[in-house]
Design a protein around this nucleic acid. Structure first.
Length: 758
DNA sequence: CGGACGATCCTTTTT
DNA sequence: GGATCGTCCG
């Protein structure tokens, strides 16, 4: 134990061993925050605190998993596994399942994801005959979400004249009414949305002091990661839970608060010292990750913000290279230039694709980079496209499983009652839904009692509905005899989802079938891990996990050596040797959506986060024109470029800007497809396979005699490479070529079909 | 009732 | 430029 404390700096160690009382750890970027948090938990365990008395809250499952692994390495898995550790949403959803009767919910309540919520809102707006353009589901949901994050229940919201005035100003006066209906329909569906998990936890604690006390007693030590990203609902839960023991330790960095659009309140960390007067504060200011240049540049950027906790992050690493600024004409050129620079670094600096990340403000920016990378045959991986569990075929199956666990789940029911087709049309569904709403019961309660024809349907339709109801009932019955895996497999077969797809001639269908198999594998893993002996792993447990998974948690099939592409939000907490931050233009970064000085400060923090992801090199780029909605718009450089002292930057030289081969880049045909999750790639994949492309049409080999050292050449199979050496082998000439994808190859020029790129 | 084809809207960021 | 929604037709 004493040994591992030696791994820490003085401040880190002080923060780890300050066991009792409120404690604020302000952790600058790259200052070893996770290390302090994990060591602190290990230290508590070592001091004899029982693991089940420690509550550790994170924002992502991934963060929780990593932390658990690191603690396991320090104190062993037996102890670490007993910690109460996870995301806010997962921990409190579990508590809500245990205490659900106090809220009038069944223990097997469904968790609605954003799509479910939006669909429900659409249905409500339609039912009220409001204008669907005026009440966009995403806007309405946002508003409801904000309300819930600030602990406004539907009743409180509908009563509040300020809220009404606000909505009225936004020309959406009926939001209060929609919220009321939304809440009521969620309840009849026995469903909670993401925000309900936090709102209802607060309601539970507010209305049931005995339960609050129970958890106050249980959680003797509470630790919160990324405290700057907590919203009011989370803040209050923490505050309540800690009232008794007062052992609250929060870790965060105000400079990295980037989630206010989701209700996060930077005030929570700014006010911690006022909230907990007997607190201790530790500032981790040494950055162990980045070069001095990167840290200093990031510092002078963030200093332009007014609202911050004063601290000075510094680095004792090498000075490092200045930040290179790429100024280009179009986003296509931006992509080619950045990719060419990456390529040059791979060849000249001997880094690998894994070392590189391209970070952008919006997901939409990824496409041109995908294309540019594909042209160079460089593998890439996009994070945050449509995640596995958002795919249609997966959502359909999940909907069936959700119905088995909770047949009142209205959104799941509407999704699959006519999929695969049972000849139950929209008109019919509308009728039964209306009947259900009028009687304030779930759709299931209407259709599962066939003798009461509440919806006034013709006999033929009733019969078709009965087939569906019987199917679901059958599996509700089987739930007790089959484990989650057997039930899912059997149900998928019986329902006939698979026969919707034809793997023979359609690549998309083939991938859908694969996805279904992958889902079954995931259920099998779950079944194996969670069932013990005669106790079967319940389906409900699997569904709960799935509902709270996010993109970052589901990107399981990692590409071995690939460039990472993601939004800056998704990059938080990660680090890469080489980071390219692209699209530094007004109205993109800062986003045109950012309003007021507060909004701009958040965008600035976002850039701060982006820059501090870099270990050795950070580069920035911007265009003079970017196409928006299909047409080119003139853009101007981001104001943030002026926030960084020029001494830390240098403009890319014209040669670097054009990159060799860039002019020709557009003429290449893509020939090998890298795997990724984006829709664009999937579509491309479809196109590619619709016609055989064994030999690219325009691949005309260059004359072997023309190939010289230093040239960039392209090989059919290996992609683009750089000629390192030319020598002779008997009568033939041989070239040693370095291919970023395939490594170094020695090829006989006479046989190797090489095409000169530049 | 379902599929095909246009019109329309759009783009933050995500637990 | 693309995804989604609505309309028209079989």
């Amino acid at each position: 134990m004493q040994d591992f404390l030696n791994d820490l700096s003085d401040v880190q160690r002080q923060a780890v061993v300050s066991k009792d009382g409120p404690c604020l750890i302000v952790a600058g970027a790259g200052s070893g925050k996770t290390r302090v948090l994990t060591y602190r938990i290990a230290y508590l365990l070592n001091q004899g605190v029982a693991p089940w008395n420690i509550l550790a809250l994170t924002f992502t499952n991934k963060a929780a998993r990593e932390m658990k692994n690191r603690i396991s390495a320090l104190v062993g898995a037996e102890l670490a596994d007993k910690l109460v550790m996870g995301t806010f949403h997962s921990i409190f959803s579990r508590i809500l399942r245990v205490e659900s009767d106090r809220l009038g919910y069944p223990s097997e309540y469904t968790i609605y994801d954003t799509t479910d919520s939006k669909n429900l809102i659409k249905s409500i707006v339609k039912g009220f005959e409001f204008d669907e353009k005026q009440y966009k589901s995403s806007t309405v949901l946002n508003r409801i979400s904000m309300a819930k994050n600030n602990l406004y229940t539907a009743q409180a919201y509908a009563r509040d004249s300020n809220m009404y005035a606000n909505d009225n100003k936004m020309r959406m006066p009926m939001i209060g009414r929609i919220y009321l209906e939304y809440a009521s329909r969620c309840r009849t569906s026995a469903a909670m949305d993401f925000d309900d998990l936090l709102l209802n936890t607060n309601v539970l604690f507010r209305d049931n002091p005995d339960i609050l006390e129970k958890y106050q007693n249980k959680f003797k030590y509470v630790l919160v990661d990324e405290y700057q990203d907590t919203n009011f609902a989370q803040y209050l839960i923490i505050r309540q839970l800690c009232k008794l023991h007062n052992n609250i330790c929060v870790v965060g960095d105000d400079a990295q608060s980037i989630y206010s659009f989701r209700g996060a309140k930077i005030e929570n960390i700014l006010n911690f010292q006022k909230d907990y007067p007997q607190h201790r504060i530790f500032k981790l200011e040494q950055n162990y990750r980045s070069t001095q240049t990167i840290v200093d540049a990031a510092n002078c950027l963030i200093e332009k913000n007014v609202r911050r906790i004063p601290k000075t992050v510094f680095s004792e690493n090498d000075e490092g290279a200045p930040i290179k600024i790429f100024e280009v004409m179009t986003e296509r050129e931006e992509a080619n230039t950045v990719v060419m620079d990456i390529y040059n670094n791979i060849v000249n600096k001997h880094i690998t694709c894994n070392d590189v990340a391209i970070l952008y403000r919006t997901n939409a920016q990824s496409r041109v980079f995908e294309e540019a990378l594909r042209k160079r045959n460089m593998a890439y991986q996009i994070y945050g496209g449509t995640s596995f569990y958002q795919r249609k075929e997966i959502k359909d199956i999940i909907a069936y499983l959700r119905l088995v666990v909770n047949p009142d789940d209205g959104e799941a029911l509407k999704r699959v009652i006519n999929y695969p087709s049972r000849k139950i049309g929209e008109a019919t569904i509308d009728k039964i839904e209306n009947a259900a709403n009028n009687m304030h019961v779930s759709i299931w309660q209407i259709i599962s009692q066939p003798n009461n024809n509440h919806a006034n349907l013709p006999q033929s339709t009733l019969a078709r509905i009965k087939t569906f109801v019987d199917l679901i009932k059958k599996y509700i019955g089987l739930q007790n005899t089959l484990d989650a895996y057997d039930l899912a497999r059997q149900m998928i077969d019986e329902v006939g989802i698979k026969s919707e797809f034809d793997a023979m001639n359609n690549l998309e269908d083939q991938s859908r079938l694969q996805n279904i198999e992958e889902l079954l594998n995931a259920i099998m893993d779950y079944t194996a891990a969670n069932g013990n002996g005669s106790d079967r792993a319940p389906l409900s447990g699997f569904l709960q996990n799935v509902a709270l998974l996010t993109d970052q948690d589901t990107n399981s099939d990692e590409q071995p050596n690939s460039v990472t592409m993601m939004t800056i939000h998704a990059a938080k907490g990660l680090e890469f040797p080489y980071v390219y931050i692209v699209g530094l233009e007004e109205n993109l970064f800062p986003s045109s959506m950012a309003e007021g000085e507060f909004g701009i400060e958040e965008e600035r923090r976002l850039l701060y986060v982006a820059i501090t992801r870099a270990k050795t090199v950070a580069n920035l780029s911007f265009c003079h024109s970017r196409s928006q909605y299909g047409q080119a718009k003139t853009t101007s450089p981001s104001r943030f470029l002026k926030d960084i002292d020029p001494q830390y930057m240098r403009r890319a030289t014209p040669a670097e800007r054009s990159g060799f081969g860039v002019e020709n880049a557009d003429k290449f045909q893509p020939r090998r497809i890298t795997q990724s999750f984006s829709q664009a790639a999937t579509n491309k994949l479809k196109q590619m396979h619709s016609q055989p492309t064994h030999q690219p049409m325009d691949f005309a080999p260059s004359d072997a005699g023309d190939i010289k050292v230093g040239m960039s050449v392209e090989h059919v199979q290996f992609g683009i490479g750089k000629v390192l050496k030319i020598d002779s082998l008997g009568a033939d000439f041989c070239a040693t070529i370095f291919f970023p994808r395939a490594g170094e190859k020695r090829l006989i020029l006479k046989y190797a079909k090489l095409r000169i790129v530049e």
